[in-house]
């Protein structure tokens, strides 16, 4: 069965005819060619496929596409500012070595975005809890936590200015 889904994707109204067994991840990558969102395990374990649905991080590999109808989806591509300026969280990951092979990075950054939207100045433990569903086989996590903490400070400093 197929259905026309209409939703907001990275700030733009979109619609597309989608088959009922497709997960959001496939729709993003295949229908909209947004390949920033990665598939790791495909089973809700690793968080590589994390996107925000109405601002809340979910694993898009197990998120039924029909459920996004009428909702708002943000992927890593949606964080880029005007003139291709990196979002402060993206910039912090680059500056602090939070990226090695990069496969976990889009998911890490989406989880971090949701955390900082809810808790602008998190503790180390809050960062670790928020990223507990994002696995990284390269960095050992220390640089990732540093990246998020430093992004939090940057964002707060910019707001104050």
């Amino acid at each position: 069965m197929k259905k026309v889904l209409s939703f907001v994707l990275n700030g733009h109204e979109v619609s597309a005819e989608i088959e009922s067994h497709k997960m959001l991840l496939q729709v993003l990558r295949e229908e909209f060619q947004l390949t920033g969102t990665k598939e790791g395990c495909g089973q809700g374990e690793c968080g590589a496929c994390t996107v925000l649905v109405d601002g809340i991080p979910v694993d898009s590999c197990i998120y039924p596409s029909f459920e996004v109808d009428g909702k708002s989806v943000t992927t890593i591509e949606g964080l880029l500012g005007e003139g291709n300026v990196l979002h402060p969280i993206q910039a912090a990951f680059v500056a602090h070595g939070g990226v090695q092979c990069g496969f976990c990075t889009p998911g890490m950054i989406m989880s971090s975005k949701a955390l900082l939207d809810e808790t602008p100045m998190p503790t180390v433990q809050e960062v670790r809890n928020a990223l507990a569903g994002n696995l990284c086989r390269c960095t050992g996590y220390v640089q990732i936590v540093d990246s998020v903490l430093s992004a939090a400070e940057k964002i707060q400093a910019e707001i104050k200015q």
């Binding site: 809700g44 991080p57 979910v58 998120y63 809890n129 507990a132 569903g133």
Partner: peptide, 9 residues
Amino acid sequence: LANPQVRNV
């Protein structure tokens, strides 16, 4: 239980 992304749904 599980992780944040799982708990969110």
